[in-house]
């Protein structure tokens, strides 16, 4: 029981940053924009969150700073791709380069300093229940935030007019424009939302996961987040399942190793990727599902005719 509990708790922590970063990107892509700079925004979010928390002593200030940093960087991306109509794929990659460098520059003074940790919550009476307590009522705040964002995103995208507009902009920007919606404006907001989520995901790494700042601490999680969005075929709840599945396979790999059965560790390390590919093949086999969800204008620039 204890072992199972620790595995479940570990999976939740491992999945949360992936979920945060990818839910933001999901909204960005739903509006028709492909931002490959998630890794860069996460890194800057991580360092700014860490620094702000360290200076003020408050992890919540850190969280806000991480969000702000992600938003600022995403606005830069927005300016280039939306206002200046530069290529989204290349700009996103350049943003990753810039973000990683920038994070390293900002963080030079933070190396080797223990950070401020955002503690787990504790609800008297509930957190104490065996197993269910710590899993459901004893997480850190951001775990709940990530799930609330998923629920809210799912609701807004599919049950509200706002969601309809976002999807219209992503599926057919010309018609959305003809109907009088500001395509560029909607996309700016979505890109900024994506930046906020990526920054928050970075902050999760440096404030909860491992409260410290070191260069390259994002270690490729931004790319996995991008992959998860496609894996989830742009559906928020499927995204949550994907993020938790990915976390589960990674952690199970470690558990199998620790039991000492002598499987090559490379094989176990590659499992999450292989499983993602296989799952994708299975999901994609159902053509109707994916086709309907893929934003038709993904990655295409929009310039209104006047």
């Amino acid at each position: 029981m204890n072992e199972l509990l620790s595995i479940v708790l570990t999976i939740i922590t491992a999945a949360t940053p992936l979920l945060l970063a990818s839910i933001g990107e999901l909204v960005v892509e739903r509006s028709g924009v492909l931002n490959l700079g998630v890794e860069g925004m996460m890194a800057v979010g991580a360092v700014c969150g860490f620094g702000a928390a360290l200076m003020t002593g408050s992890p919540l200030v850190g969280v806000l700073a991480a969000i702000a940093a992600g938003v600022i960087l995403s606005m830069l991306f927005g300016f280039l791709t939306l206002t200046m109509v530069s290529n989204q794929v290349a700009t996103g990659l350049a943003l990753t380069l810039l973000g990683l460098g920038l994070a390293g520059m900002i963080g030079e003074g933070f190396v080797g300093q223990p950070g401020v940790k955002l503690e787990k919550i504790s609800i008297p009476g509930l957190t104490g229940i065996p197993f269910i307590g710590p899993v459901l009522f004893g997480q850190d705040l951001l775990v709940y935030v990530s799930l609330i964002i998923v629920a809210a995103t799912s609701y807004v995208l599919f049950r509200t007019k706002t969601g309809l507009i976002i999807r219209a902009v992503g599926d057919s920007h010309q018609s959305a424009h003809a109907l009088g919606y500001s395509v560029i404006g909607v996309r700016y907001l979505c890109v900024m939302f994506g930046g906020a989520c990526s920054g928050l995901a970075g902050g999760y790494l440096s404030l909860v996961y491992t409260p410290q700042w070191v260069e390259n601490m994002t270690a490729g999680r931004g790319w996995i987040a991008l992959a998860l969005v496609v894996f989830a075929s742009w559906l928020p709840w499927r995204l949550a399942i994907g993020a938790y599945l990915f976390g589960t396979i990674t952690i199970l790999g470690f558990s199998l190793q620790a039991v000492g059965i002598g499987i090559p560790s490379q094989l176990l390390s590659s499992l999450p990727y292989v499983v993602t590919i296989l799952a994708l093949v299975v999901i994609s086999g159902n053509r109707a599902l994916t086709r309907a969800n893929t934003p038709a204008c993904l990655g295409q620039p929009f310039v209104p005719d006047r």
């Binding site: 109509v85 350049a94 810039l98 460098g101 390293g104 520059m105």
Partner: peptide
């Protein structure tokens, strides 16, 4: 530092990508 060099490279790429838009727009 290696970071400054990378930031600089990122900025260079941004400018090139943005300016290329002026061909069509």
């Amino acid at each position: 530092s290696d970071k400054t060099a990378r930031v600089f490279q990122g900025i260079l790429l941004f400018y090139i990508l943005a300016c290329d838009s002026l061909i069509l727009y």
